[in-house]
């Protein structure tokens, strides 16, 4: 008699426990993977926390966002090879374009799905030099002088490196007039590069920690971060007379989110980059916000300079990629010499 009551109680307890487990499971746990390029590590640590909080308040679901970082080109390759990225937040449009061209993971019109050509924040390329600027580097012309060590990553694998290259090209073309002169100028510049790292962060560690070279061509955000991490008493930022408007682009990877059933949250994640809070987080992490109101708040941080545009000055990424960085393109010609 006693024992049967006991077992009845046990059964009830098990039932209640199971019920409790089921009820907690009704608020969903969602996992997203954001595959990004090198210097955005700190940005997305901040942004992911903010988005998870926002999403929890809005829907009650817990979303955890995993991050993967590397050279922009190699990250795009990994997604095409099967890395299950819900969203790709890469350094430039052409790397996301590869997700359409090679893997057919996104539709052709992906870039029109979000505002500003799918670039929620922008950046530019500046020079990072050692304190006191011992080599007196002021503008692009100083980079081709003999004896100046220039640190920049490999344009074949790094998005930042391609912006660096194009900024130098654009400067030379404007100043010296012809493509041949520009080619000669950029060729001279790359003769001064002692090592081509595969990603922007690798280049920064080469310059900052291994103390290679006299100047690093760096993402503006990467240069600010180096000042923040290592102190303004060690490095200085030099703003050249002309640079390029770098537009890191983002996209939902349609094939992956459809399979994982994460379409809604992945889309909301990217939309949130354009929200006031998302823009503010970008500004705090030294990316230039695209929302004018938030950008005004950070106007003092970012220097004003003349910026070339990839579409107006280079005829878009597809063309620039083909002319300069494809196998046998101009970069291959000058780097072999």
């Amino acid at each position: 008699m006693n024992s049967s009551i006991l077992s009845l109680r046990t059964a009830l307890a098990v039932f209640l426990l199971a019920a409790a487990l089921v009820s907690t499971a009704s608020a969903k746990d969602i996992a997203l993977l954001n595959v990004s390029y090198d210097p955005t590590r700190e940005l997305y640590v901040d942004f992911n926390a903010a988005f998870a909080k926002y999403w929890k308040a809005k829907t009650g679901d817990t979303v955890t966002i995993k991050q993967s970082h590397g050279g922009s080109g190699s990250q795009a390759r990994s997604i095409n090879d099967g890395l299950q990225a819900d969203v790709a937040t890469l350094a430039l449009g052409v790397d996301i374009e590869a997700l359409y061209n090679i893997g057919k993971l996104i539709p052709q019109d992906w870039q029109k799905r979000l505002a500003n050509n799918s670039a929620p924040y922008t950046s530019t390329i500046v020079f990072l030099v050692r304190k006191g600027n011992p080599k007196r580097i002021k503008d692009w012309d100083d980079l081709v002088k003999p004896g100046v060590g220039v640190v920049t990553p490999n344009p074949k694998t790094s998005g930042g490196a391609r912006w660096n290259y194009l900024a130098a090209w654009g400067y030379a073309l404007k100043k010296y007039g012809t493509e041949d002169k520009a080619k000669e100028f950029v060729g001279k510049l790359y003769k001064n590069v002692p090592v081509l790292d595969s990603g922007a962060r690798g280049a920064t560690t080469s310059f900052v920690q291994r103390e290679i070279g006299d100047v690093e061509l760096a993402w503006e955000n990467e240069a600010f971060l180096a000042l923040k991490e290592f102190g303004a008493d060690k490095f200085e930022i030099v703003v050249p007379s002309l640079s390029i408007l770098a537009e890191p682009t983002v996209a939902v990877v349609d094939k992956v989110v459809k399979k994982k059933g994460t379409e809604v949250v992945a889309k909301a994640y990217l939309d949130y980059l354009y929200s006031d809070e998302g823009q503010d987080i970008a500004g705090r992490n030294f990316y230039r916000p695209t929302n004018p109101a938030i950008a005004a708040k950070y106007a003092k941080v970012f220097p004003k300079l003349e910026l070339l545009s990839i579409d107006a000055d280079f005829g878009g990424w597809t063309k620039a990629q083909k002319t300069h960085f494809a196998d046998g393109g101009i970069f291959d010609q000058i780097y072999v010499k």
């Binding site: 590590r41 995993k66 993967s68 970082h69 990994s78």
Partner: peptide, 20 residues
């Protein structure tokens, strides 16, 4: 694939920390 907390082994984690 370098997914933090998922596919990073100890040697890869060392590299990530160093790069950060």
């Amino acid at each position: 694939g370098h997914i933090r907390g998922l596919t990073n082994t100890m040697p890869l984690h060392v590299e990530i920390l160093y790069n950060e």
